[in-house]
């Protein structure tokens, strides 16, 4: 079973890596921030799998913290770092 968990965790890590391509190419800043949120959800899943695979129930607390803090960066982006529309397209040209 542990091998299965670790294999699945590797698969999810590949998903994570694929999400990075969206950050690289994403036309608008919103796309980039989306990918960052994808990372949060996938990381929680990976952590739950690792908690089972490595036999350390304490890792669930780590995924709890991830779940709680996933929102902080997205809200920080939306409320602060999202520049007004005019500038946005210019810098991505």
């Amino acid at each position: 079973m542990t091998a299965f968990y670790l294999g699945l965790a590797s698969f999810l890590l590949l998903n994570l890596a694929a999400g990075m391509w969206r950050i690289l190419r994403g036309p608008s800043e919103a796309d980039r921030m989306l990918a960052a949120q994808l990372f949060g959800t996938t990381a929680v899943a990976i952590l739950l799998l690792l908690a089972e695979a490595m036999g350390q129930p304490a890792l669930r607390d780590v995924s709890l913290v991830f779940a709680l803090l996933a929102a902080v960066t997205v809200v920080a982006f939306v409320r602060r770092a999202w520049r007004p529309a005019t500038e946005e397209h210019s810098n991505d040209a």
Binding site: S28, A30, M33, L34, Q37, G40, T41, V44, L48, R60, S63, L64, A67, L68, A70, A71, V74, V75, V78, W82, P84, A85, E88
Partner: peptide
């Protein structure tokens, strides 16, 4: 944990969508 992630991503999705709409995407 699952509920919290649901809450966070639902809010995130709403905020991003509303912001994108207001920025004219």
């Amino acid at each position: 944990i699952w509920l919290l992630v649901l809450l966070a991503s639902a809010t995130g999705a709403h905020l991003v969508a509303r912001g994108a709409l207001r920025r004219g995407i």
